[in-house]
Amino acid sequence: NLYFQGLKYMVPGARVTRGLDWKWRDQDGSPQGEGTVTGELHNGWIDVTWDAGGSNSYRMGAEGKFDLKLAP
C-alpha cells in the first residue's frame, strides 16, 4: 500500500496536500493548498498547519483512512 509506505516520511516539516480520503472541505484553503506537518504521527492521526492559515489533525491510518499525501 503506497500510503503505508509513505508514512515514514510523514514527519514534522514534511509538506502535504489532501489525499485519497479527504473529507474536510476547504480546511486546506480555497483553492486547495499545501501544508506542513507539525507533529508526530499518533494513533493514526497527524497534525498539519496549512499555508492558508488553519491547522488541524488528520487521519493517516486512523479508521483505515488517509486524508493526506506528500506534496509533489
Rank of each mutant, 00 (worst) to 15 (best):
N1V: 10
N1Q: 11
N1L: 11
N1E: 15
L2R: 14
L2T: 14
L2N: 15
Y3Q: 15
Y3I: 14
Y3E: 15
Y3M: 14
Y3L: 14
F4L: 13
Q5S: 12
Q5R: 09
Q5D: 15
G6M: 15
G6A: 15
L7S: 10
K8C: 15
Y9W: 10
Y9I: 08
M10I: 11
M10W: 13
V11E: 08
V11I: 13
V11R: 09
P12D: 08
G13H: 05
A14M: 09
R15L: 02
R15W: 06
R15C: 04
R15G: 02
R15A: 02
V16E: 01
V16T: 00
V16N: 00
T17Y: 06
T17W: 05
T17G: 07
T17P: 02
R18S: 04
R18M: 08
R18L: 09
R18F: 08
G19R: 07
L20T: 13
L20I: 13
L20W: 12
L20N: 13
L20H: 13
D21T: 03
D21Y: 04
D21F: 04
W22P: 04
W22Q: 04
W22R: 03
K23S: 10
K23W: 07
K23E: 13
K23M: 11
R25N: 14
D26M: 08
D26L: 07
D26N: 11
Q27L: 05
D28S: 06
D28K: 04
D28P: 07
G29V: 06
G29H: 06
S30Q: 13
S30V: 14
S30A: 11
P31E: 10
Q32A: 14
Q32Y: 12
Q32C: 15
E34M: 14
E34K: 13
G35K: 01
G35F: 02
G35P: 01
G35M: 03
T36F: 04
T36V: 10
T36S: 08
V37F: 02
T38F: 07
T38I: 13
E40V: 14
E40L: 13
L41F: 09
L41M: 09
L41H: 07
H42G: 07
H42F: 11
H42T: 13
H42K: 13
N43M: 11
G44F: 04
W45Y: 07
W45P: 00
W45N: 00
I46E: 00
I46T: 01
I46Y: 02
D47A: 13
D47F: 13
D47G: 12
D47E: 14
V48P: 00
V48Q: 00
T49E: 12
T49P: 00
T49A: 11
W50A: 00
W50P: 00
W50R: 00
D51C: 04
A52E: 09
A52N: 12
A52M: 11
A52Q: 10
A52Y: 12
G53W: 00
G53M: 02
G54L: 10
S55G: 09
N56A: 14
N56V: 04
N56S: 11
N56H: 13
S57M: 12
S57N: 09
R59K: 01
R59Y: 03
R59I: 02
R59F: 03
R59Q: 02
G61P: 01
G61T: 02
A62T: 04
A62S: 07
A62P: 02
E63Y: 11
G64I: 04
G64V: 03
G64E: 07
K65M: 09
K65W: 04
K65T: 04
F66T: 05
F66R: 03
D67V: 02
D67S: 01
D67Y: 02
D67H: 02
D67T: 03
L68R: 00
L68Q: 01
K69M: 14
L70K: 05
L70E: 04
L70N: 04
L70Q: 06
A71H: 07
A71T: 11
A71C: 11
P72L: 11
